[in-house]
Nucleic acid binder design. Structure first.
Lengths: 118, 118
DNA sequence: TAATGAACTTACAAAATTGTAAGCGATTAG
DNA sequence: CTAATCGCTTACAATTTTGTAAGTTCATTA
């Protein structure tokens, strides 16, 4: 939980007021969020599928990041109509509207991320 | 300084290997970096000008973020030809190549950052 | 019905980032 | 010559993020 009285928190808020780009970035901040959005861009997936596609993430962090993405409205969680207690995650319309942003980020990375040549 | 043996560090590296977008994001991570790039997109500026335009940042953090941006090659630091010990910062070609990314981030924020309506 | 697996949660610890306060050397203004 | 300003740096503390390890609940499988 964040302390809403800390300078840190207050600064973040101020920043979002004066820089739209920084606001967008804040919605994506968290080690794995962007990658999760990319994966969910391929279609809806279950918790364990995501865990499988991003092996290094721990269950705790995966749950945490999914919850935050849900809270910011970028993804939604659905319960299967067939089986109870079986969920899947998918991009919400807001999440889909990030498409252009994600494309740009990927494109720049593709050109400049030399490490990815491995 | 980052500990290159920590799981945290190793995970970041792995992630950049499997997601270009995440790599790009990592170049922008740091509370104020993106906003500094936006400001420098308007033209080259001096340390104190940047401090003036982003009041909440402290000198320590400003120096830190500028140094990191320089190290990742997104900006460059020039000494004035007229006066010694007077520097200015500007976007490097690599920094300018971020233009499309920054545009997307700004555009999405403009639409979705309700807080900016203040 | 006991065992298994999915999707988490909890308590804790380590690491990373950000902020506070003060100071310092060079240069410039007075 | 002296004081003020610029562009930092240092030592330290608070905050935030990320990871470890273990446990829980419900539902399906054997």
């Amino acid at each position: 939980m964040r302390k809403t009285t800390s300078t840190n928190y207050i600064n973040a808020t101020k920043l979002h007021g004066l820089c739209d780009a920084a606001y967008t970035l804040s919605q994506l901040s968290g080690r794995w969020k962007l990658t999760l959005l990319v994966k969910l861009g391929e279609g809806s997936k279950r918790f364990s599928e995501l865990k499988g596609e991003v092996p290094a993430i721990t269950e705790r962090i995966l749950a945490l990041q999914l919850k935050e993405l849900e809270k910011s409205g970028l993804i939604s969680k659905q319960e299967s109509t067939l089986k109870k207690k079986q969920y899947s995650y998918e991009l919400s319309p807001l999440g889909k509207s990030m498409d252009q942003v994600i494309q740009s980020l990927s494109a720049w990375g593709k050109i400049n991320n030399l490490q990815a040549e491995l």
